[in-house]
Simulated assay, not measured.
Amino acid sequence: MRARPPRHDSSQSPKGNLQGLMGMGTLCLILAGPGPGAEPTTTTDGVVLELPDGPAAKAWAGVGSETAPHPLHPNLRKACASSSPAGTAVPTWHMWADWVAAEAQESAPARRAALCLLARAQGRHADAWGHYAKLGADPRWVASVTPYLLPGAPLDSSVEAGGNLAPLPDGVLLQPFLPPLLEDAGSAPVGVAWRKATVGGIRVGEATLELTISVEATGVQVDLIHRGGGPVKVAILIPEPPGYEIRIEYLDWMQTEQPRRPILVDLQPGAEATTLWGRMIERRVSLPTGQADQLPQSLVQGGLFLSLPADDPQRAAVGEITPVLAKLLGVRVGLTEPGAPLPGWTGTVLHLGNSAERGQRLTWLASAIESFLLQPR
């Protein structure tokens, strides 16, 4: 443990952000409330989830206490075994491509749920919440996937009626997902957009817990509160916002020795909230933004080339996914090396960079292809 920084309390966020928080979507809605824009909640048993106003909150609002979850896609757990596209096995790329191609032809909730959780496993936050919102027409699918986003339960966890998690084992690893953006956030924010989500009624061992995750200007905060039962331990992996890297982590404002590792938290009955904080910096990886209505002509006429050194240990695996991408996009996709000339007069090159950058670049590629093919036509 090292020096303790000043406490960063999400309650000190600007007033405008607090007003945006007042309109959170929740499991149980009642008409009476403390003021305009508020959606207070009440529940006696089970999960309570508060999300920022927006499509995801509207989807969750359709889940009732008796909503029975659907079973997940049989291949989903295998597909999500890797937490980064850089480590994704070739069969997973094939499954992803099949799901995206089929979904582009005709939407099916089972595929949307699978794409949602695969995006979650790969840290594609906007994609995951976008798929989640599309599930709103069938609350049973919303109930099926929600616990794997918040509080971020393992994929082998059982989900009961109403989106409730079956009791989790003592010491379980939770990987809470970043909350979706506020609906009224307007244009894309510069930097990180502040938002917050809370999930209660989490049963771990003999205890019941509440988890709040907040995205701040300089980091991500996770607060855990023991709400009942006996003592329990929980491991938490703080998520990284896209385009940012968490370099320093704190447990109750004491710096941990090894960042980007699960942090084991000992929760005792009657104790104050335990706070985890990840301080982040912007990654120096420049990637295109926005979404095109059609493929650029350089890509259509010349193809896409993934660039990495000839002696890169991942080159063979990357080469195996090029036919998958070619089939999805309907263009030539191949490999090249840094500085090597392209075979034709034009083409698009994506430099995959070093091993530290590769996950983010492949995440961007998967997200860009998925968003392009599934956009409304």
Score class of each variant (00 low, 15 high):
I281M: 13
Q221C: 04
P269A: 05
M254Y: 09
I246T: 08
A292Y: 03
T208R: 12
G228S: 04
G290S: 10
I281R: 15
D293E: 14
P239F: 05
R227F: 04
R283M: 14
Q294S: 15
M254A: 14
G243E: 05
I238F: 02
A207W: 06
Q268M: 10
S307Y: 04
I246G: 08
L224A: 03
I238G: 01
Q268D: 06
R260F: 01
D293W: 12
P241S: 04
D252F: 11
S286M: 12
V222S: 00
Q255T: 09
I238L: 15
L287N: 09
K233E: 13
Q255N: 00
R284M: 07
I263A: 06
E282H: 08
P242E: 14
A271P: 02
P288V: 11
L304W: 00
V222G: 01
I281D: 13
L295W: 05
E206Q: 12
S307E: 15
I213Y: 00
T208E: 15
Q294K: 09
P296T: 09
Q268R: 13
I213T: 13
P296N: 05
G302E: 04
G290L: 12
L211F: 05
E245Q: 12
E272Q: 14
L209M: 05
S307R: 08
I246P: 00
T212C: 11
L237A: 12
G290W: 06
V300I: 15
P231C: 07
I246K: 00
V220L: 02
G219N: 05
L306R: 06
E272H: 15
E282P: 04
